Structure formats: structure tokens, C-alpha cells
Computed example of a mutant assay.
Amino acid sequence: MTGEQLKKLRETLVMTQKEFAELVGVGCSTISNIESGARTMSLLTRAKIIQKIQSDETSSIFADKF
């Protein structure tokens, strides 16, 4: 998942970076750095995002894109 894809997902869920970071269980700076391209997403962070997305019925449609 690219930073741009992550940002689109977060915005589709109508969440701030802070809210999304709290949902996923990572720091706000992690989300910010991934979205800006300053950092690549770790496998652990990716797994956390997918797990949270799949647990929410309204956003599970996005999980197959990652």
C-alpha cells in the first residue's frame, strides 16, 4: 500500500490522521510519514490496518486493494 492509497482510505473513512492512527494502534507520526512518502509502511503496520479494516463491515471493501 502506498502513502497515497493510505491517505485515500483514511479520507474515505472520514478520519483524521490522529483518529486513524489510534484505530490502527500506531503513532500519528507513522501515518503522517507514510502518507507523505517519508517512510515506507512496515509489514506490521500493514497487517494492523488490514485487520482493523476487515473488522469493520463498512470498510471491508477496501481490504482487497491492499
Rank of each mutant, 00 (worst) to 15 (best):
K7V: 04
T40F: 04
V14F: 10
N33G: 01
M15V: 04
C28F: 06
L6T: 02
T12A: 15
S60V: 14
E22R: 03
R39Y: 02
A47M: 11
F20G: 00
L43E: 13
T16G: 10
N33D: 13
N33L: 10
K7M: 06
K7W: 02
E22M: 01
L44C: 07
S32D: 08
L43V: 14
K18W: 09
G3C: 07
K7I: 03
E22H: 07
Q54R: 12
M41T: 02
A63G: 06
T30M: 03
M1Q: 08
L43K: 10
D56G: 07
G3Q: 08
K48W: 02
V24K: 00
T12K: 13
S32Q: 10
Q54W: 05
Q17W: 05
L6R: 01
I31M: 02
G3R: 04
T58W: 09
L9C: 06
I61C: 10
G27F: 01
K48N: 08
T40N: 09
L13C: 11
M15G: 01
I50M: 12
E35G: 03
K7R: 15
I31H: 00
T16N: 11
L23D: 03
D56C: 11
I50Y: 05
K65W: 12
L9M: 13
I61W: 09
A47F: 10
A21V: 10
S29L: 01
T58V: 11
Q54V: 12
M1F: 11
G37L: 03
S55M: 12
V26Y: 00
A21I: 08
Q51A: 13
G27L: 02
E35F: 04
E11Y: 06
M1H: 08
T2W: 01
E35A: 02
Q51E: 15
R10P: 03
R39E: 05
Q54D: 14
S55V: 05
E35L: 03
E4W: 02
I61A: 10
I31P: 01
I49F: 09
C28Y: 07
G3H: 06
L9T: 06
E35C: 03
R46T: 09
I49D: 04
C28N: 09
Q54E: 15
A38L: 11
A47S: 14
S55T: 13
K8L: 06
E35P: 06
A38F: 04
A63P: 07
C28K: 06
I31R: 00
D56P: 05
L9F: 10
F66H: 05
R46W: 04
I61M: 10
N33I: 00
V14P: 00
K52V: 14
D64E: 15
M41P: 00
I34D: 00
S32G: 07
I34H: 00
A63R: 06
L44F: 11
Q54S: 13
Q51H: 14
A63K: 09
L9Y: 07
S42Q: 12
T2F: 02
K18T: 15
E19V: 02
V24T: 04
L43R: 09
N33K: 12
K52M: 15
G37K: 05
K8H: 09
S36T: 15
D64I: 14
D56M: 14
Q5R: 14
E11A: 06
I50C: 08
A21S: 13
R10W: 01
T30F: 01
R46G: 04
S59F: 14
N33S: 11
K8A: 07
